[in-house]
């Protein structure tokens, strides 16, 4: 008897499979999404940092969203060095003027863009940072100059709340 109406039977089985597959996919999503940042992590506020006591030529490291942020108060030479570099010499061309709105202050994530290590201060061939993991050299603007890292160190969203306080995030 089943041979008489092959279309209906085919439709039934196809529909069952299709609807079942949609359901399975819908069930999988919550199981995947639960590993994404949760509401409390997403809500984690900005960090305010008092930089009043930082002297020129010094770097402080603060924690923001579980990552180190370098805040460097640059010397005049460092600024000059950073701003005189030619764009074509850069692996990842970015103007220092865009990276440090206030030239005295460089704020960036202290995370090597190669594989996520924390570079060392005042090291390397370009007077900036040097990543000990795989030998990436960054200049005084935190831009990648030599080594395996593909990008400059990331500048997060930040603002000066007042002359001595930086709000990151």
């Amino acid at each position: 008897m089943s041979d008489k109406k092959p279309e209906r039977r085919d439709f039934l089985f196809t529909a069952s499979y299709a609807v079942g597959a949609v359901g399975a996919a819908a069930v999988v999503w919550p199981l995947i999404d639960q590993m994404n940042p949760d509401a409390s992590v997403k809500a984690l506020a900005s960090t305010e940092v008092d930089v009043g006591s930082v002297k020129r030529g010094n770097t402080i490291t603060v924690l923001w969203r579980g990552k180190p942020v370098f805040i460097r108060r640059r010397t005049e030479e460092e600024i000059k060095e950073a701003r005189s570099v030619k764009m074509e010499d850069l692996i990842h061309p970015e103007k220092d003027e865009d990276r440090a709105k206030n030239p005295e202050w460089l704020v960036m994530l202290g995370v090597c863009t190669h594989l996520g290590c924390v570079p060392l201060n005042d090291k390397g061939d370009y007077d900036g940072w040097f990543c000990p993991c795989h030998g990436s050299h960054y200049d005084t603007s935190g831009r990648i100059r030599k080594g395996p890292a593909p990008l400059n160190m990331e500048v997060p969203k930040y603002e000066f709340v007042n002359a001595n306080t930086i709000k990151i995030g």
């Binding site: 008897m1 039934l12 089985f13 359901g23 819908a26």
Partner: peptide, 23 residues
């Protein structure tokens, strides 16, 4: 609602498949 729809579909699929044996 989804489960009810799928249950109905599977129910008729089951009837179809088992009709081979019962016949």
């Amino acid at each position: 609602v989804y489960l009810i729809i799928l249950t109905v579909l599977v129910y008729f699929s089951m009837k179809k498949i088992w009709s081979r044996v019962e016949s």
